[in-house]
Design a protein around this nucleic acid. Sequence first.
DNA 1: GAAAAGATCTTCT
DNA 2: GAAGATCTTTTCC
Length: 189
Amino acid sequence: MENYWHWLDVLVKEAAKRLLGCEIVRVIDGQVLRGRIVETEAYDQTDPASHTYTGRSIRNEAAFRSAGYAYIYHIYGLHNCLNIVTGGEIAGAAVLIRALEPLQGFEYMEERRRQTGKNLTNGPGKLCQAFSITRELNGHDLLRPPLQLLQEPALPSNEIVVTTRIGITKAADELRRFYIKANPYVSKL
DNA sequence: GAAAAGATCTTCT
DNA sequence: GAAGATCTTTTCC
């Protein structure tokens, strides 16, 4: 079992890197929104900062679903955050999507955000608002509309920057945040 | 431009 | 009853 936790941890970090450059496609009100993932963070059950650290609960149930599902939670009373589940069934692991580079549907995003430019999607709460991602989609299978994840070729490692995570107090010195080098949509460079 | 404060509510103790 | 994987606005340099 010790070995199992080790590899769960290795794999979620690997998935967080691998998700950089992949596309999120959202269909809403007859419109298609697209964005490219530029910043991620890895969380799993071995990690004190993770919602799954203390095991299953009502809130984190979706994080224990099959890999490739969405785990969406509500934070600070007014924001939602999107995760891609990577563990599956017996262990909770997920990658937080912290920032997107908008590709399509700018007008819709500007209207929802009441902001323009990089402020559309350069933060986990911001991108959920821009893409109308709410907890109705918690536990959604990301192979299907109205919210899909499209795989893209892996980025070369010299394009990826690794740092500590944002906004946490536990395990704050662990290198579990990944972003695309010099991308203006990264939440905090 | 940085720092501080306020908004606002679900989940878990 | 408190904490929290955040964002906006205001207030100061």
